[in-house]
Amino acid sequence: MNPDLEHRLQAWVDGELDASSAQEMESLVARDPEARALGDNLRLLRGFLQEHEPVRALPETQDFYWSGIRRGIEAEERADRGRESSDPSRETGGRAWWSWVWPAAAAALVLVVISLFPGREGGTAGDLATSSGASSSAKAPAVVPVVGHEIEAPEADGMETVTFYSSQESMTVVWLAHADVL
């Protein structure tokens, strides 16, 4: 029996062939004792593995976790597009309505936060992004911005403040760009 036929037989045993190919394999097994013996052996082996091979749950890595979320979002977007294409009224109705609610809610949240922490309440992610002095001073992968109101810079004139915490180095950094200290 040639290898190609063996592979097709194995695929048939695994239920991977389409209907016409599967029918071909059934005919082959019926008339060819060698193919029938191989098929029987493969079935036996498959059953043995299914019954006795231990199932091991692999720990989900962080990359896999986030890529799973990304795949979920992409699948939902695809489903949304599918629904929109099948229902044109959603384009101007439901979808359009939802598309601006979340940005509006986010903008409102930002305004609330700004109004709660007025002035140069440093340590926000925005500060980290806009402060050229700080962003060029710290090695970005090692640090995370600290968001909070525990910092004040009342006399800061032209000064930019960024607070971040490096968990790796157990270090809280308050970066005062353009500060007149020395």
């Binding site: 810079a153 009342p154 006399e155 157990s170 809280t172 308050v174 005062l176 353009h178």
Partner: peptide, 20 residues
């Protein structure tokens, strides 16, 4: 006064105030 910060300091933790 350039900056005022409230901060917890325990053994092993460091606070760095810095500037250019």
């Amino acid at each position: 006064l350039v900056v005022k910060k409230r901060q917890r300091i325990v053994a092993g933790e460091t606070v760095v105030l810095g500037g250019d």
